[in-house]
Amino acid sequence: MTRRRRERAAVPDPAAFPTRSYDLVKEFTIALVVVALLTAALAAVFSSPDDRPVTLASWSRADGADFTATAAAELGGTSGTAEYGPPYNHTPGAAQKLGPLGLQSAAGVRIPIDTAEDFVLRPLADAPQPPVVRVALAAWAAAPAARQQAWTKAYSDALAKAPGGDPAKVTGGGFGPVPVLVARLLDMARSGALDGQLQAEGKFYETDYTRPLLFLSDGSYLETLARAQHLGGDQWGMMNETGDYPGQAWLWLYTFWYQIEPFKSSGNADALIWGLMALLSLGLMLLPFIPGLRSIPRWTRVHRLIWRSYHRTADQPEGRDNSPG
């Protein structure tokens, strides 16, 4: 029998080997004290990041033009959320696919969101409004869908052309009640009322921030702040943290795929990368059963270093064990 064959034979019982005294409880106690002290020192020296959250109020005050453009898109049903597809709404062709697998569509619309109704019209209708806004709401409700869309499209285009996106500098017409509705929403946001409005919806206790977060994400203000901190998806943002803090470095492989082709430019990047990561995680889990990969430790011979004190006594030209008792 060759040496190699013998090495691959059954792994012996550890109890058969010579032993040395080893105090597990003492080892754990020392480790716990060391880790606790190290944690206390790192926390004292470096503290932790806590950048203030963005509110609809702070966003609308800092960048009214972006808020206005976003609100017009929410009303017209052309924002990112409005055209997202499942789980928020039915948008044909919006769902990602993993090859032939349409898991996003299969899960269905379970968090239904109508951006015009939920982000603009209901918050306006639920608050006491001056007559001009009440008239505008009534005009919007009375118009057919095609007319509503023509108004919002005309207004969004005009905003895009206006210097700095400033609503005050918009020229042209055919906007219907849209400028009044959006301007009133901006006022409510600036006063802080909209933050509460989007949250509460007739409830008192609230723990679900889906609506305000989606509204915020549809604008470009939040993303501009994030990109400045290297948090963008194409900046390896997933493993980064605000400021100079270390982030979730363990997400390096997941975020890596987003930086390269074919994922970088794929409309199905998320689904493809999730599928790939699921496969790789399964591979790591089942490594002991994968021929080739499971032999890497034997080939690299790092194990000779780890068990050098064993080999010092056990090795003979034949490679047989006879370590001392």
Binding site: S47, E241, G243, D244, Y245
Partner: peptide, 24 residues
């Protein structure tokens, strides 16, 4: 207050496609 303030502008190294924060 922490003696070492890590809340300033982050430092990053770029190496081809790789973008890594100095902290990481």
């Amino acid at each position: 207050a922490a003696p070492v303030d890590l809340n300033g502008t982050g430092h990053y190294v770029h190496w081809g496609v790789i973008q890594l924060s100095v902290a990481n």
